[in-house]
């Protein structure tokens, strides 16, 4: 490639500010998608737990959504929601369902029945039982699903760069570098995106430790 070095460090130093902004945008887009996806998924999981017959269809739909290529979904949504943030977020949110719902349901299913029987027998109200027993015991799988969805979404956010330079987070550099055949930009976008995913992953591992010290105690005693 006409004698260019693989990484143009001068470009990198000159663009530290914009790169930081892109990281911010990347995290912002990720946080909205994971947050909204989590709330909707939690509701879907709650309904599935209470009405078991609804669970299989919910999983089928969530899986079907996940099979739609992101590229196609972003493109198709432009026709409906234009080049708005909705177009960027809707696919990201839809893709989280299959990562959240089965894990949340499994988390609540994993609460031992004898513990619930004991809680009822000792006089927990329904609300107390949910907040003090069911939720804490479901937490390991709930946090695991947050970890999964966050890492996955951080990767997918890059694709939203096709909606223009107001979106995409670090994906902007990947797309721009591709158009200009500028390796430095592609590497910056790609590697930083991977770095964010790794950091998020570690963050959730730590959060898991803090929130469920008892699970660690069990692992040690085995």
């Amino acid at each position: 490639m006409n004698g260019e070095p693989l990484v143009r460090w001068d470009w990198l130093w000159a663009h530290l500010g914009p790169i930081a902004d892109r990281i911010g945008q990347h995290l912002y887009l990720t946080a909205i998608a994971v947050g909204v996806g989590f709330v909707i998924s939690f509701a879907l999981a709650a309904v599935s737990i209470r009405r078991r017959r609804l669970y299989p269809p919910v999983v089928v739909v969530a899986t079907a959504l996940y099979t739609i290529p992101s590229f196609a979904l972003f493109a198709a949504l432009v026709a409906i929601t234009g080049l708005s943030i909705l177009t960027a977020e809707i696919p990201l949110v839809l893709y989280t369902f299959i990562l959240f719902v089965p894990n949340i349901v499994a988390g609540f299913d994993a609460v031992p029945w004898d513990v619930l029987d004991a809680a009822d027998g000792m006089g927990f109200t329904a609300g107390q039982r949910w907040w003090r027993v069911e939720l804490p015991l479901a937490l390991p799988l709930v946090v695991a699903s947050l970890r999964l969805a966050t890492v996955s979404t951080i990767g997918l956010v890059t694709v939203s760069a096709i909606l223009g330079d107001r979106f995409g987070g670090l994906g902007y550099y990947i797309l721009d570098g591709y158009h200009r055949t500028f390796t430095t930009e592609i590497l910056v976008g790609g590697l930083l995106s991977i770095g964010l995913a790794v950091l998020a992953d570690l963050g959730f591992v730590l959060l898991q430790r803090v929130l469920t010290p008892w699970a660690a105690a069990r692992a040690v005693s085995r």
Binding site: P112, D114, V115, L116, D117, A118, A119, D120, G121, M122, G123, V133, P136, L137, T212, W214, R218
Partner: peptide
């Protein structure tokens, strides 16, 4: 229920 003690075979201690 709060004034009746309840012990079961599976114990049902709160693991967390």
């Amino acid at each position: 229920r709060r004034r009746i003690g309840y012990v079961i075979q599976q114990v049902g201690l709160f693991p967390h």
